[in-house]
Computed example of a mutant assay.
Amino acid sequence: MKPFESAGISLREVESGDLELLRQWRNDPAIRNHMCDTTLIDESQQARWFQNIKMQNADVHFVAEYRNSPIGYINLKARPEGEYESGLYVGNEKYRGSFLSFFIAIAQLDYAFSVLKAKGVFAQVKKTNTAALRFNFKLGYQESDSYQDYINMRLTPSSYKQQRKILTGFIR
């Protein structure tokens, strides 16, 4: 599959050569502590994960690249009725908290809504992860419900289209 380009970010399928870098990023406490599953991932677990994602036709898993360098990871997991659950992290410390985080999310959501024709995109965020909550609200997500330690958020195509115009207006 040809890489998907949007907002200066290239999204390409995860390849076996990416596994160690993705595992290192995923195990970084700055990322891992905000995940639903905070356990450390070993090499064999990462290899099993890769084998599983290769068999999932409805889900997408991409390495996000900026200027031909990997800087993050995104996924979109199929849900019923044409909706997807999103996952994203900026692995390269140099770009965490920068505006490139929004570029990665814009590329992810452009893919979801233009290629996959998603009817909605969901995100699950820990209540303690205030930075991710603010980030998702700026992208146009709305809180849909909450349970235990998590807030579920939903983004519609129309809300995203409106927020995308605002966010990309700052870029130009």
Rank of each mutant, 00 (worst) to 15 (best):
I106Y: 02
A64S: 15
E20H: 12
G169R: 11
V115E: 08
K77C: 15
K119H: 14
Y73W: 02
V60A: 03
T38I: 05
S10Q: 07
S69P: 01
R48N: 10
L109V: 05
R23V: 10
R48P: 04
R172Y: 12
R67I: 13
D149H: 11
Y150N: 08
L116R: 05
F4M: 09
I71A: 06
S114A: 12
L88Y: 01
A58P: 03
F135D: 07
S10L: 06
C36K: 08
W49V: 13
V125Q: 02
I31V: 13
Q108A: 07
L100V: 14
E83H: 00
G120I: 03
N68C: 08
Q24C: 12
F113H: 06
Y89N: 06
A132M: 14
A123R: 03
Q162N: 14
T39D: 04
V90D: 01
L21C: 07
E13N: 11
F135C: 09
I106N: 01
Y141W: 06
V14P: 03
W25G: 13
P29G: 12
I74R: 00
L139R: 05
I106F: 03
N27I: 01
P157I: 03
F50I: 06
E93T: 12
N33E: 13
Y111G: 12
F137Q: 01
N68S: 15
A47N: 09
K117N: 11
V121N: 05
S144R: 11
L22R: 00
A78N: 12
Q163L: 07
L40K: 07
W25T: 10
E5C: 12
D37F: 09
S146Q: 11
S98T: 15
P29Q: 11
F102T: 14
E81S: 15
E13G: 10
R67N: 13
S10H: 00
Q46M: 09
D59M: 00
E5S: 11
N129E: 06
Q24H: 13
L40N: 04
T156I: 08
R154E: 06
K117G: 08
N136W: 00
E143K: 10
K127S: 10
I171K: 11
Y84W: 15
F170S: 09
R164C: 07
N33Q: 13
K94W: 04
R32T: 01
L155Y: 02
Q142C: 10
L116Q: 01
Q56S: 14
Q148V: 10
R12N: 07
Q46G: 04
R154V: 15
G91L: 07
I151Q: 06
G82L: 00
N92V: 07
G120Y: 00
E43A: 12
L109I: 07
K161T: 10
S44F: 03
Y141E: 02
I171N: 09
N129R: 06
E143C: 13
L100E: 08
A7T: 08
G140M: 03
V63W: 02
K126R: 10
R154F: 11
L76S: 03
N152E: 15
L167H: 12
A123I: 01
N52W: 02
Q163T: 14
L100D: 06
T39R: 15
L109N: 09
F113G: 00
R79N: 11
K2L: 13
A64Y: 02
